[in-house]
Amino acid sequence: MAESEKPRDKVKEIGRREFLVGSGAVIAAGALAAGIPGTTEAAASSITYPKSEGYIVYDSRLCLGCQSCMFACALTHEGVANPSLSRIQIIRDAPSFTKYPYDVVMSVCRQCVSPLCVQVCPTGACHVDEANGNIRRIDQKKCIGCKKCIQACPQDPHKTIWNPVIKKSAKCDLCEGAPYWNEKGGPKGKQACVETCPVKALKLVTEAPSQTDINGYDLNLAPPPPKAKPQGFVLPKQATDKAAEKGGN
């Protein structure tokens, strides 16, 4: 194995633009201005879809970055603990030198009111599931692996994900029909990510959050502050008192 081979030559960054160029896909210029929901609205304004009956909102300041949700998502959907296959991505800076609250980015599918991923899918694989609360989901049997749903996702990083093994796209389905999930999923059920989050930084809501505010899904989910009490370890009062009674030495 070559000793001096520089990794940066072999590891390239992949951006949305590269996805587009690489695949030769053609998308409306407006959709390229990623991360601007207003643009998303404009691009998709000609088509309307029934709203999803469920949305996962989150609190990026509450999240510990433990990635329990990622492992739970990959396990319940793919049967393997593979964070790259998780439909939710919790991205922590590494080596974690970025200061709170900018050290964690929560990348959660928005179940968009105007879902570009659905709109651009050429086969109907990415669709609105009217039988299950209108969730935006991908039927992998119909997916041809064209990546258009990935390219069209207006979020950075894109919420539709790529499974390189089966060469198909996947996205959050609110755990509706997740093969390794023994609970009922979907908008009226439970989601593995929400259920396994130890700090309740994820929550299912039924009303669509703001689609025009880029932070519309990032809400304050923190519990009421506890009554004032010391943090960290607390001294053993009993031991202190007894030692003090004896005068120390």
Binding site: V11, E13, S84, I91, R92, D93, A94, T98, V105, W162
Partner: peptide, 17 residues
């Protein structure tokens, strides 16, 4: 770009560092 991109490694991807 931390938090904004997937990194391609071989034919696979990650958002992690």
């Amino acid at each position: 770009r931390f938090g904004q991109q997937w990194q391609e490694i071989g034919n696979e991807y990650t958002t992690l560092m």
